[in-house]
Structure formats: structure tokens, C-alpha cells
């Protein structure tokens, strides 16, 4: 006989209260995690979509990529040895359309590479979000630092940088616009040798993300909220089960007196915790995934299945730890003490 289930059935309200609290906390965690991930994509999809690898920037730039200038001779040496490597530059700027409407974009240019869009001089490839704003293939765009005009050649999905859509342009156009001859960064994808290059500092993808102004501050704040919520849910479990266990000390004592094993009482508590958490998580996953689809266009929200599963596992572990800590009382209960306390 499953006494855990019998108690849930008889004390529905009590367990529904705990379940609804777990549901609300986990739902909030999923939503904030979705926002954190969405903002992260919005801030650095250009980098996050790259395969794992190593970025190089000038040591003198002190981890600020837009101050970095790669010596052309070093660049040539690296690119000639590593076929898949690319040199790239990123610079924030503006594009004006025919109606002189200005749009903020991140201009990106690179040497010939399969990792980035390769565009001819005078052409531009834009992030899809600009198509949704009304731009079309064939439209012409201008920039006050560029003498010519850019013709829109196409759109690409999920290419954002620093909360702005990416605009891939040709290297020569980029050099003219920003009056530089050097590129800012080198990128060598994994699977290749990562040489130590004198005068250059190397970064993994995640290390490079943290050099983007505002990225780590933004992510740190949101992830801190997510972890606070997870800890709060663990505390909720511990406190709720502690309160329930205190109320049931007499019952546990009587059950022990008639010969029920302490491990059976723990299993009863764990079963109840698992039941509540699984139902609460199932509901919050369903709702947060629905939110994934109905979130307003302007809201950077991205809740992946992997994040959902990871957070769900964390919730289950935290719930288990919280319930077990509160269950230490069960181990301490003396049958005699319970009998002397009177009716349970």
C-alpha cells in the first residue's frame, strides 16, 4: 500500500499549496532563464553561433576588442597556415534607408570564411529582424561614413550583436568606413592548432563573450536571480516538509512503535516530494514553452529544451535535498515520546 499517495489524496489542499508554490517559483525561474538566454542571444548571437574555438586580439587592447588591431603580417601568417581561420572586425554603426530612416546595426566584416557571410563590395547581408521591419532584397542603404551605397543581397537568421542586428559588409567597404587597414580579431575554430602568437591574447568563445561590454553584467544579474529562485525553492521544500513533519511527529512515532522502518517513512516523504515537484514542473514547463511561442516579437525570450531539462533536474535535486534535511527529524523521533504525547 502506498501510504504516501494515501496521504496526498486525503490532504489535497495541503499538498496543492506546496505544489502551487513550487509551480510559481519554477515557472518564474523558467521565464527569467528564458529572458536571460534571449538577452544573451540578442547580445551575442553572432559569437554564440560560432563553433567552439579561439579568439585572438591585440594584447595592448586590454581585452577591449574594438581597440584591437591585428598586424597584417601576423594575420597573413595565421590565415595561410590555418585554412579555416578568419580575421574579423565588428563595429557599431547606422544605416539609412531610402526614406532616410536610421537603423542601428553592428557592421561585421571578415576574410573569406565559411563561418561568416561573404559579401561583394557594395553589397550587404542583414539579420532577418530588419526584413521584418520592412527592408527587402534590392533595397539600397547608405551610411554617412561610406561614399557609396549598399544593396541588400539577403537576410540571415539569428545574427545579432550588442542588441543590434548584424550587417555583413565587404572588407574593403569596412576599411573605407572606419579608416583602418587592420582587422580587430582572429578566430580559429576547434579542431585546428591554437598557436601562442606573440603580441596577441587568446580567448575561448565564452571568455570572449565576457569581453563584450554589458554582456557579463547583464548575464550575471539574470543568472543570479535564477539561482536565487532555485535556492528559494529548496528552502521552501525544506520549510514546508519541516512543518509537515513537525505536525506528524506523533504519527511517525506510532508508526515506528508498530514496527514501520525509518527508511519507509523517508521513502514516503521522498515520494510525496517527487510527486509534487514533477507535477509542478510539468505545468511550468508547459506554460513556459507556450510563452516561448506567444512572447511578443520585441521580447528577447529563448528557452531551450536543454535549459529546461537542466533546470528541472536542479529543481528535483534541490527538492530532494530540502525534503531530506527536514526529514532528519523523522530519524530522531522516539516511539515512546509520541505515545506519551497522546492522539496524533
Amino acid at each position: 500500500m502506498n501510504i504516501a499517495w494515501k496521504e496526498i489524496k486525503k490532504s489535497k489542499v495541503r499538498f496543492m499549496i506546496l505544489g502551487s508554490i513550487v509551480f510559481l517559483v519554477s515557472f518564474l525561474t523558467f521565464i527569467i532563464s528564458g529572458l536571460a538566454n534571449g538577452l544573451s542571444q540578442d547580445n551575442a548571437a553572432l559569437i554564440k553561433n560560432l563553433p567552439d574555438g579561439q579568439f585572438y586580439m591585440n594584447e595592448d587592447a586590454e581585452e577591449t576588442y574594438n581597440l584591437s588591431l591585428i598586424d597584417p603580417s601576423i594575420q597573413e601568417k595565421v590565415l595561410s597556415k590555418q585554412e579555416q581561420a578568419a580575421a574579423l572586425s565588428i563595429q557599431m554603426g547606422f544605416l539609412n534607408d531610402d526614406e532616410d530612416k536610421q537603423r542601428s546595426v553592428a557592421f561585421v566584416t571578415s576574410t573569406d570564411s565559411t563561418l561568416f557571410e561573404n559579401v561583394k563590395e557594395g553589397e550587404i547581408v542583414l539579420d532577418r529582424s530588419l526584413e521584418e521591419e520592412g527592408l527587402k532584397v534590392g533595397d539600397t542603404l547608405t551610411n554617412n561614413q561610406f561614399s557609396g551605397k549598399f544593396v541588400v543581397k539577403g537576410f540571415v537568421d539569428q545574427q545579432k550583436y550588442s542588441h543590434a542586428p548584424v550587417a555583413f559588409i565587404n572588407m574593403e567597404n569596412y576599411k573605407e568606413m572606419h579608416r583602418v587597414n587592420e582587422m580587430q580579431l582572429l578566430f580559429i575554430p576547434a579542431g585546428n592548432e591554437f598557436p601562442a602568437i606573440k603580441g596577441l591574447q587568446s580567448f575561448s568563445n565564452s571568455e570572449f563573450l565576457n569581453t563584450i561590454p554589458s554582456y557579463s553584467a547583464e548575464q550575471l544579474s539574470l543568472n543570479m536571480i535564477v539561482w536565487f529562485l532555485i535556492v528559494i525553492s529548496g528552502l521552501l521544500f525544506a520549510i514546508f516538509f519541516y512543518m509537515m513533519n513537525v505536525q506528524k511527529i506523533g504519527l511517525y512515532g506510532i508508526l515506528k512503535a508498530i514496527g514501520v522502518k525509518t527508511s519507509t517513512l523517508f521513502k514516503m516523504m521522498w515520494t510525496q516530494m517527487l510527486f509534487i515537484t514533477v507535477i509542478a514542473l510539468a505545468l511550468s514547463i508547459a506554460l513556459s514553452q507556450s510563452f516561448n511561442f506567444i512572447a511578443p516579437d520585441g521580447m528577447p525570450f529563448s528557452l531551450t529544451a536543454v535549459t529546461t531539462v537542466q533546470l528541472s533536474i536542479v529543481f528535483l535535486v534541490i527538492g530532494f535535498v530540502g525534503a531530506t534535511l527536514s526529514g532528519i527529524q523523522i530519524k530522531k523521533v522516539e516511539p515512546l515520546q509520541a505515545i506519551q504525547q497522546g492522539e496524533v
Binding site: 494515501k6 496521504e7 486525503k10 506523533g250 504519527l251 506510532i254 492522539e343
Partner: peptide
């Protein structure tokens, strides 16, 4: 006292 399990 009877000390029965209240939910059974």
C-alpha cells in the same frame, strides 16, 4: 489513545 493513521 487509538493513535490511528489519520489519512487511512
Amino acid at each position: 489513545s487509538a493513535h490511528l493513521v489519520p489519512f487511512l
